[in-house]
């Protein structure tokens, strides 16, 4: 059985180190050649991230993977998969994602006619600023480029002005002061040379972890034999999801080392951005904003039923509770 697979960003490590090897080599090995895949990525196909799961639901391809946040246009409830700041380390982020999994499963089934196979993280979304920033309070009044709706709303709640510009326009915008700060994965920022045009790095995951959802079209899934289903499910869990999570924490430390020059950079030249460590008071205040403003707004967008499910799952493992009214 040959599956047509569309991967996430082709230039990022998740695809190069985990997605591509898994689908093009590992899968065929563990299934003894019974399951194989032809693989491309959404950026190589020239389709927008937000279209990946829409096309998956139409059966254009069999398996698709992209950042869950890209798909929140079709389901506000899905925003609950990636709430900023509730997980500051990989282990907690993984717990939150695992807790959210049943919700995500249901959303994908209903909205995209798809079955979720795995959820793996991108490195956490941190903040690059051009100009002095010493804490989260310092973001007030600044123009910040955010990707994803909840991050933008969160920044607005913190008193920053959310600016919506494309990834490629960011370096120029930072340099010319069109924006003061921008949120992206530490590794992507490193690779895209954002250190050239920004001076301070806030390493809190203000943009969340951008979990990448891998899903298979439900009709395709149902057409597989039980043996194929279980091979695929266990293989993707053990050989893709688990290692991707395992490397997430280390990757962040390394990315930060490469950007700030504090510690050893294993993949390139280290640079000298100033590391801004948020203090506990700061963090507490930001969490307060999150809980009192951002999450209730989300609960309104998504509906009380989803808010309750979120409370009982993600909320429970991260110790965050949103008040339902």
């Amino acid at each position: 059985e040959e599956l047509s697979v569309v991967g996430s960003w082709s230039s990022l490590p998740l695809y190069k180190q985990y997605e591509m090897p898994f689908w093009t080599e590992t899968l065929s090995e563990v299934s003894g050649g019974d399951l194989t895949a032809t693989m491309t990525t959404h950026d190589q196909m020239g389709i927008a991230g937000g279209d990946v799961f829409r096309m998956l639901s139409q059966g254009v391809f069999d398996v698709g993977m992209t950042v869950g946040d890209y798909a929140v246009a079709d389901s506000a409830a899905l925003e609950g998969l990636d709430v900023p700041l509730i997980a500051t380390d990989a282990a907690t982020a993984q717990k939150a994602v695992e807790a959210a999994r049943p919700m995500v499963d249901d959303i994908y089934k209903d909205v995209f006619n798809a079955k979720v196979l795995a959820i793996a993280p991108y490195p956490p979304q941190v903040v690059f600023c051009n100009g002095e920033v010493s804490n989260l309070e310092g973001l007030k009044g600044k123009k910040v480029r955010a990707s994803g709706r909840m991050t933008a709303k969160f920044l607005e709640a913190l008193g920053a002005e959310g600016v919506n510009i494309g990834f490629g326009e960011v370096p120029g915008a930072l340099q010319r002061g069109v924006v003061d700060c921008a949120v992206t994965g530490a590794g992507s920022g490193y690779n895209a040379g954002w250190w050239e045009v920004s001076s301070h790095l806030i390493t809190l995951p203000l943009g969340g972890w951008d979990p990448v959802v891998t899903a298979i079209n439900l009709d395709k899934w149902n057409s597989l034999s039980d043996a194929q289903k279980s091979t695929l499910e266990s293989a993707i869990k053990e050989k893709f999801e688990a290692p991707a999570w395992q490397s997430a924490q280390g990757a962040l430390a390394n990315d930060i080392a490469c950007l700030t020059g504090t510690g050893e950079c294993t993949y390139g030249d280290a640079h000298d951005m100033t590391l801004v460590a948020a203090n506990d008071e700061d963090l507490a205040k930001a969490k307060e904003v999150l809980i009192s403003e951002v999450l209730p707004e989300w609960a309104e967008r998504a509906g009380p039923e989803w808010a309750k499910r979120w409370n009982d799952s993600v909320g429970k493992v991260t110790g965050v509770e949103l008040t339902l009214n």
């Binding site: 230039s11 490629g168 370096p171 340099q175 010319r176």
Partner: peptide, 13 residues
């Protein structure tokens, strides 16, 4: 050039 900068992650200015 903007498109190129975007796709290759290089500086547009």
């Amino acid at each position: 050039l903007i498109v190129y900068g975007f796709l290759t992650e290089s500086s547009i200015p």
